[in-house]
Each structure stands twice: as structure tokens, then as C-alpha cells.
Simulated assay, not measured.
Amino acid sequence: MDKRNLKRLVTLLSVPLVCSLPINVTASDKIIWGGYFSAGVGKTNKEDTSYNTPVGGTDFDDSVSFEPLTRIGLQGIIPIDDNMRGTFQITGRNDSVTSTSSTNGKKFNAEFEWANITYDVSDELSLQAGKFVLPVYYYSDFYNVGLAYDWVAPPAEVYVAPSATEGVLARYSTYVGDYELTAQAWSSAYTGVGIQERDVLGMALSFGKEELLFRFMTLEGELKFNAAGDYTDFQYTAFALVSEIGNFRFVSELATADVDNNTDARDSWYASVAYRLGKFTPVLTYSTNEDNPFLSSQSPSYFYAKEAYTYGLSYELSIQSKLKLEYKDIKMDDESENASHNLISASIDTVF
């Protein structure tokens, strides 16, 4: 997707939003609606193998499944006055972790993924409070919106952080010549299924333009992986390099997780190249993550060491929809007969 359409998606679909506004909005008596929908299918080629996706609540396995990629998001902006607005996103996906359905423990759940109030101090500075997007990665603001990228889903070897968090965030954006400079700083806490984070402080900086952009993010705080466990200090750092020249696009991200009670930091990274040929965009991606004994013991499907070669093809059905096909060659860092397996998947992604 070219830079102009990507910025349009960010503006329309990724403005994080509000939680406790009254239903009868009086400032403008209207809500600005937008949203996205993705439907996908996939399977691995061997029994007793699986692969997680950062956009879904379930993993792929050796049976044909629509659950990991299928999701819908409904987003609204509620103008309050000239400087303040509430925003929210309701996301629906199949989540086996939190479901109590009698059908294999799975059902389609909808929840407020984001909900916050934004106050524009000036044209350059804004403040947010509530539940907002956690700006860890380059695609964090819109990684659920499949139209924003040419993969079926972002690389799971890198994209492991929660998508949203609760707290306060300040954002400053300006131009230095032809280059855009954006700085974000936040304080937050997070409670999810099997993981809790507290006293988190983070910052992110990006600098560049369409041809070349650099991004840096760092956060630190305390986490634990179960209610009975103890909190431990952690630090997470991520770098991104993005270049788009003509029809060529290159994206690479590196992330490092450092947990205080383990001496081995966990590095993960990917590099992806794409070239647009009319309505078709072939994509080649290499992604990998190292093992960290502590993290792997807490959540094996997300943190176990593996690498993947991904061969994809995206076709632009219209300016608001894409069809994607993808073949992933996965190699786990163990000696089992299923250490190497494949994942075949496809998706249709739209915005409305």
C-alpha cells in the first residue's frame, strides 16, 4: 500500500478512542463511523503443529481453520468540542482463550479494544487518557487492519506485545524540513489473559519521510505471567527501518526483550521486501526469534525459538479491499520430526 493510502487508513481507522462518554453526544450530535473486516483461512501441513497469528485469538493447526484471521472492527469518533474528542474501537474475533462456549471452547467475542479521550493542546501536541494503542511496533496503530499491509498477518516472531494498554499518552509531531518527526511518551498498565504489566513507562521516536523512515521504541516496567507469580522487571526495545521508493518497499524491525530474572535477552527481527506490479504485489519475508528459557516456559507458542520464510502475493481488488495468498516455511528450534512444517493461508481484507 502506498504512503498516501496508509496515512488515510491511520486517520480513518486508527484514532484510539473513549470509554465513558454519555450516549447523547451534544457537541455535534453525531458519531463518525469507520471500520474494517478480514476473513481468512489456513492450515499447517503436519499433525501436532501450530502457528500463532498476532491478529487472532486462536492458532492455526493441521485442520482447516477460519478462526485465526477472521475479525471485524467498528470504530467511532465522537467530537466533544474543537479540541477534544472521544474515540473507540469494538473488535470482534474468535478467541478460544476467553470463551466459555460449549463448541470446543470457542466463540466469536466482541469487546472495546480501544476507548479513550484525546485532547489537542496544539496542532503538534495531543494528550490521550484511557485505553489506547500501545505504540510498540511500526504497524501497531493499524496491525488489525489487513488492508494496511501486504502480508496475511504481521510476522508473529516479532509482534508479541499487547495491542492496547490503559494509561496516559502524549504525542508530539512536527516537520524538520521535508522530514516528519513524531515523539510519543506514555505511562500505562495492562492486564490480559495470563499476563499482567504495571508501572510501565515508554517512549517512541520516528523520523523520516516516504523514501526512508527510522523508528525507535523503548519501554520498561514490571510483569508477571500468572496471578500467583511475582512481578519481575522487564525492558522491551524495538527498532524499525522503512523505505518506499517507487514500486519498491522494504520494512525491517528488530525487537529485544530483557527480563530481569533471566540473563538471556530475547532478540527477534524480520526483513520484508515487496514490489508492486500493477494490482499485484509479491512479498518475501524472513523472520526469526531467539529462545529465552523464562519467556518460553511462560508462553511457548509465542516465545519458542523459530524462523520462517514467507512467500506472499497480494492483489488489489479495489482501493478498499485486497486478496492475499501466503505460503510460510517454518523451522522450530528443536529436534522433533515436526520441527519443520508449512502454513498455507489466504485472506480478504476490506475497510468501510
Rank of each mutant, 00 (worst) to 15 (best):
K107T: 12
L284R: 00
N262E: 02
A110I: 13
G56T: 03
V351T: 15
F303A: 01
S102G: 15
T218P: 04
V200N: 08
D59G: 10
L212W: 02
S272Y: 03
N116K: 03
R85A: 08
F239M: 10
D59N: 12
N247W: 03
S63K: 14
S38Y: 02
L17Q: 11
P79R: 05
T91F: 06
F66M: 09
A153F: 06
Q235S: 15
Y309G: 11
D29F: 13
N289Q: 14
A189K: 10
N52S: 13
A115I: 09
D349K: 07
T182K: 14
A227H: 15
G177F: 01
D258Q: 08
D123S: 07
I348V: 13
M217Q: 13
D230I: 13
T100A: 05
G177C: 06
V168W: 06
L213D: 04
G229T: 12
E166P: 00
L74K: 01
Y159H: 06
G73N: 01
G76F: 08
T91P: 04
I195E: 06
V158C: 11
T26R: 05
A170C: 02
V145E: 05
G208E: 06
F234D: 09
K324M: 07
E113A: 10
S299G: 00
D123T: 06
S297N: 08
V176L: 03
Y139F: 10
S321H: 08
W33P: 06
L223P: 06
T285D: 00
F280P: 11
D61Q: 00
P282A: 03
V168R: 01
F88R: 02
Y304R: 13
I32F: 11
P135R: 01
L12R: 15
D2E: 00
S188E: 10
L169H: 04
S173I: 10
Q298V: 03
K46V: 13
F352D: 03
G35L: 05
N261R: 01
S206I: 12
F66N: 00
L134P: 06
S163P: 02
L254H: 12
A27I: 08
K279C: 09
Y315A: 08
E157I: 04
K306W: 07
A170L: 09
S126I: 05
E197S: 04
Y36W: 15
N94R: 07
F294A: 10
I344K: 10
R8W: 14
V158M: 11
Q196G: 04
K46I: 12
S99L: 00
A271Q: 09
A308W: 06
E244S: 08
R71E: 01
Q235V: 09
G229D: 15
D264P: 02
F108L: 10
L325Q: 07
